[in-house]
Nucleic acid binder design. Structure first.
Lengths: 317, 317
DNA sequence: CGCTTGTGTGAGTAATTGCCCATACGACAA
DNA sequence: TTGTCGTATGGGCAATTACTCACACAAGCG
């Protein structure tokens, strides 16, 4: 399962090699000579440092076009915050770029000295963002999960990232130890009234900033792929006009919640109130477009991190 | 002087190319294709982004900070070599870490195929370093002791490590079978002129690399604790301004040898000339600080192995 | 107009890097 | 002890990148 289990000394050496390579500008041959190892080993160390995420690259240049687009997004859609990253024309990754940008934005918030409450949704993009996050000690903050973290089969929901982020930033974390979608509305009420859960819900309502993903509801909707809803439930949602899902709750093209269906059983917290919280969605790509549009229309979010291409389409509507 | 004056659009393009290269992980060929330029131009853009400082690399690992400090030490104090090991906040050991680092540095030298002359001082840190040393067969090298190995009571000086190291590395070793401090200047001359000793002294002057400790001269100075000098001699040295001792010889805060006193009787070799030899001091901790500063000021050493905390204090002066 | 100068481009080539494979080494079970 | 497995290592080679050079083009100037 997962973790490649790399020993500490290995990582130390890898960090050394990575430093010599990226910071000191040595070639791998030189590193090999200095460390008394073969060039191949040096190469392995450098690439280990990269793959273990020790090496972070940042570009200190606001690309004019992206800045323009971000500004236009804010103006046009009344967003409090918008960030646009360059599009990689050839890549079909749905997280590339926006994940880094989201991580950077999180870091900006976490660096604050005044304690904040950080709400965290779920999804592939967020997971990728957390992976990019540099470790930073901020015990003054609280991180609260906006969704349950238990899969229908009882296992931990893979894309629930509350533990990952809490680990990285050493803040107090508040997971929601319950299923993403309850089996009935009554069960949801029962769960939500538990003494363990109520404080978490209250905390989430007081979040200062929240990062959420936007899930599409196409044939391969993440909610379906990950087993939270059945194919029939997915089709019912679509038939009812649902175009996207945010922390498990489905919305139609105007950003209005779908009545009934799985929405009655979603055990997530509410999206933190946009009056008091900055709710940032991270999403890019054509599949997410209807969802982004809906989220904006319905005022579900007031912050957006997306890519150049998606931003252009949003603005051309 | 002046900026090379690169236009904004150029930098924008460079930033874009740099982003595609470093963040999106494209090859320069792919970038060229995507941006519709030649591969060479793509390469130029990327390297422009780097040279303009748009690309910032950070290493998320404690080691990175150590390497940064080492680089600063070299720059600031004109050292040929510097190594900084992480400080273990909980430990008060004066050898932890630096000993391993010293052993590693020795190993790097010993792995050389071309014969080298390795000078060895004395002290607790060096003894610990030798203990860390992995056995390695290198009969091509010579190891020469820089100090005598006989205690005032006639026993072997405990922290003289020439035999330990010779044993480990199977090299020809050259001990100095005489007291660390002679009873009089005349005796020292007599001892040094012995047929058995002279070649050793000559060899030490031709050392390629030497490892020495830096001894403090506080109340519990190693030189006193180990019985090489009396309490009165120690006090006289301190009164004369001595702050540290390297292979038995006392120096003031500017790294200048104290005139007279025990220095007239120290039977050690001279510190190998820094023009031809790399003289590496291994020392860490607040007690050693004045000594390290003195050794650097006086140009007594041109290499340093220390720990993070000590390095930071050195650089903050 | 012709010349110089500086900038940008592509070709060619050397240097560097990434990756595959054969081998060696150590742990562990038979 | 032997065999096997997983891991680490170095050689070799292909891909990628960095650099040098020659040339094209445009601006400035006599």
């Amino acid at each position: 399962m997962s973790k490649p289990e790399v020993t500490t000394t290995k990582l130390d050496d890898a960090a050394r090699a990575g430093w010599l390579y990226y910071v000191a500008g040595n070639t791998q041959d030189e590193i090999a000579a200095k460390l008394g190892i073969s060039r191949q080993s040096a190469q392995r160390m450098v690439s280990l440092a990269v793959s273990e995420g020790l090496v972070k690259v940042r570009l200190d240049h606001p690309i004019a076009h992206c800045l323009d687009l971000a500004e236009q997004l804010k103006q046009r859609f009344g967003l409090k915050m918008a960030e646009v990253v360059p599009t990689d024309p050839g890549s079909s990754s749905t997280t590339l770029g926006v994940a880094d940008a989201a991580a950077a934005e999180m870091t900006r918030w976490l660096r604050s000295d005044v304690p904040i409450i950080l709400g965290i949704g779920t999804g592939r993009t967020l997971k990728a963002a957390i992976e990019q996050l540099s470790p930073i000690e901020c015990p003054q903050h609280k991180v609260v999960s906006l969704t349950g973290n238990i899969s229908p089969d009882g296992s931990a929901a893979y894309y629930n990232v509350i533990f990952n982020i809490a680990d990285k930033i050493k803040a107090r974390s508040f997971p929601m130890p319950l299923p993403v979608i309850a089996s009935s509305p009554e069960e949801r009420e029962l769960l939500h009234s538990q003494a363990m859960i109520r404080p978490v819900l209250e905390l989430s309502a007081r979040a200062n900033v929240a990062f959420v993903g936007i899930g599409d509801l196409e044939e391969d909707a993440p909610l379906f792929i990950d087993g939270f809803i059945s194919r029939e439930e997915l089709q019912a949602l679509r038939a009812a006009g649902a175009v996207c899902e945010i922390i498990g709750r489905a919305f139609n093209e105007n950003g209005e919640p779908i009545g009934g269906l799985t929405n009655d059983r979603v055990a997530s917290a509410q999206i933190p109130p946009r009056e008091t919280a900055l709710v940032i969605a991270t999403a890019k790509g054509p599949k997410k477009l209807p969802g982004i549009v809906a989220a904006i229309k319905g005022g579900l979010i007031n912050g957006l991190i997306t890519d150049e291409h998606t931003a252009e389409i949003l603005l051309s509507r």
